[in-house]
Computed example of a mutant assay.
Amino acid sequence: MQIHLVLPGLLWPGAPAISPTAGLALPALSRLLGRGEQQIADFAPLDRQLAALFGLGEGELPLAALRRLGEADAPVDVTTGEPPAQWLCADPVHLHFARDRMLLSDFPAEGDPPDAAETAALLASLNDTFADLGRFEAPTPTPARWYLRLAAPTEATLYPLNDVIGRPIAPFLPEGRDGLIWQRTMNELQIVLHNHPVNQAREAAGRRTVNSLWLWGAGALPGTLKAPQPRVQASDPLLRGLARAAGLTPAEPDPGAALAAPATDTLVVLDSLRRPALQLDLDAWRAALADVETRWFAPLAAALDQGRLAALTLSAPGDRHTLSLRLGRQARWKFWRRPQPLDALLKTLAPPPAALPTEPPPENP
Rank of each mutant, 00 (worst) to 15 (best):
H4E: 15
L7E: 02
L11M: 10
P13C: 05
P20M: 04
P27E: 05
L29E: 00
S30L: 01
E37V: 07
Q38N: 04
Q39Y: 03
F43W: 11
A44K: 08
L50Y: 04
L53K: 03
G55C: 12
E60R: 13
P62W: 07
A64S: 08
D73R: 05
P75T: 10
V78C: 12
T80G: 07
L88V: 14
P92D: 06
H96G: 07
H96S: 11
D100S: 12
D100W: 06
D100T: 06
R101L: 07
P108N: 11
G111C: 10
D115I: 01
A116C: 02
A124C: 10
D128R: 15
D128A: 14
D132C: 00
D132T: 06
R135L: 09
R135I: 00
E137Q: 10
A138L: 13
A144Y: 15
L150R: 10
T157A: 15
G166W: 01
R167T: 00
P168W: 10
A170I: 03
A170K: 03
P174A: 03
G176L: 07
G176Q: 05
I181G: 02
M186V: 01
L189T: 02
V192R: 12
N195C: 08
A218I: 00
A218V: 08
P222R: 06
T224I: 05
K226A: 15
Q233S: 07
A234Y: 00
D236P: 04
L242R: 06
A245R: 11
P250N: 03
P250R: 06
E252S: 14
E252R: 07
P253R: 09
D254T: 10
P255N: 09
A258I: 04
A260K: 13
A261Q: 14
A263Y: 04
A263L: 10
V269N: 02
D271L: 14
D271C: 08
R274L: 10
Q279A: 13
A284I: 00
W285P: 01
R295H: 06
F297V: 08
L300F: 12
A302D: 14
L304A: 13
D305P: 01
Q306T: 14
A310Q: 14
S315D: 13
S315K: 12
A316V: 13
G318K: 04
R320G: 12
T322A: 10
L323G: 12
R332A: 15
R332Y: 04
W336Y: 04
W336K: 01
P341A: 15
P357I: 10
P357L: 05
E363T: 05
N364D: 14
